[in-house]
């Protein structure tokens, strides 16, 4: 699967945003063009892909998002749009006109929701979000990014029920961006985090919401009981793998936190498999230096058997940034780009 970034512009400022670097570095008029979208669709389909995700910034800002979605669906691709749900009224009307009442299948929105108490938003944002969820609820799966250990999930269950959202929750953990300062979860906080997540199991069960773990969750910080519960209701993954983000200017990188690390042009590759190989080599280089976010990742059998990815690679790279350059030349050369004063 690949992520297509329609724009780097966002209409929200989440304190934990790990796409900050990408959005800050991109030019202000960075919008995906039709020509590039067609090329990307060709590229992905010739690589055997059947699903794309549309991201941003905030992808619904793109003036042609409706056309793009219809086009990609017409190309027989399943489309997932990652949005914050703060959609303009005009855009919402377009969604209703062209997607409402079951007019399109193969379309899903993943709406990233913030805790209204811990991460309050202006009223207008909240209104727009509510309008979006009200109109598009059945197409929407909720998403939540954990950036503090005292997070709450109650509002999510309420939102799911109120707007008839799909009962699948994408749970992400915020990651550090090498070279930037953002709120993120430290490895030594993770065990506490997972315990807190587990404390919501009754509500997950009662409301039949399945949690899906995004990248960078280490398996060793889950107890067997926690793992058992997760495994019973979902298919948790503990990997750190390439998300393959493709930007409006046709750059491709491993994931948002590593948007400036070994960034290449899509035109340098002939297939998605080549891109995956490229980033797999990148991960291999980093793991040759340090296997994971914990000391015990070194020699860990779960890593050896590809059950766990040893946490997020970005966590490791951040440590490299702050030390004397002792890593292999390829890593140091890339990190040097991020060692410039902010």
């Amino acid at each position: 699967m690949a992520n297509i970034l329609l724009t780097s512009i966002c209409n929200r400022s989440c304190p934990y945003c790990f796409a900050q670097r990408e959005m800050a570095d991109a030019s202000s008029d960075n919008m995906m063009s039709w020509d590039n979208l067609i090329y990307i669709a060709d590229f992905l389909q010739s690589s055997g892909e059947r699903h794309v995700s549309l991201l941003g910034g905030e992808p619904t800002i793109h003036p042609q998002i409706v056309d793009f979605i219809l086009y990609l669906i017409e190309r027989n691709l399943d489309v997932t749009v990652f949005t914050n749900g703060v959609v303009s009224p005009a855009r919402l009307r377009e969604f209703e006109q062209y997607f409402g009442n079951g007019k399109v299948e193969k379309l899903t929105f993943v709406c990233n929701l913030n805790d209204p108490v811990l991460t309050p938003a202006p009223a207008e944002e909240t209104d727009r979000l509510d309008a979006f969820l009200s109109a598009m609820g059945p197409f929407v799966s909720p998403g939540f990014n954990i950036y503090r250990t005292d997070f709450t999930l109650d509002f999510l269950f309420d939102t799911i029920n109120r707007f008839g959202l799909r009962r699948y929750l994408r749970l992400g953990m915020t990651h550090p961006i090498p070279g930037k300062k953002n709120l993120f979860i430290h490895p030594d906080e993770m065990q506490q985090l997972f315990a807190r997540l587990y404390s919501y199991r009754e509500k997950f069960d009662a409301f039949r919401v399945k949690p899906g773990l995004d990248c960078g969750f280490p398996i060793c910080r889950f107890s067997d009981e926690q793992l058992g519960w997760l495994r019973r209701i979902s298919d948790p993954q503990f990997s750190c793998g390439a998300a393959i983000d493709i930007t409006p200017d046709m750059s491709v990188y491993h994931c948002f936190p590593l948007s400036n690390y070994k960034r290449k042009s899509l035109f340098e590759f002939d297939s998605l498999a080549q891109i995956h190989d490229h980033f797999a080599r990148l991960r291999g280089q980093i793991k040759a230096e340090i296997a994971g976010i914990y000391p015990e990742c070194d020699g860990c059998k779960y890593q050896e058997e590809n059950i766990c990815g040893g946490g997020g690679m970005c966590q490791v790279l951040v440590r490299f940034l702050n030390e004397e350059p002792v890593r292999m030349m390829e890593i140091e050369n890339e990190l040097a780009k991020n060692r410039l004063p902010l």
Binding site: A288, E289, I290, D298, G299, R319, F320, N322, E323, E324
Partner: peptide
């Protein structure tokens, strides 16, 4: 310097004080 494969024989070694990330300017 923390590096894969080196902890196993050097963690807890009487000659090793710390395993981690050398600060800028560290003697290597």
């Amino acid at each position: 310097v923390d590096r894969s494969k080196y902890r196993v024989f050097l963690e807890g070694h009487p000659a090793i004080q710390n395993i981690g990330h050398p600060p800028p300017g560290a003697r290597l």
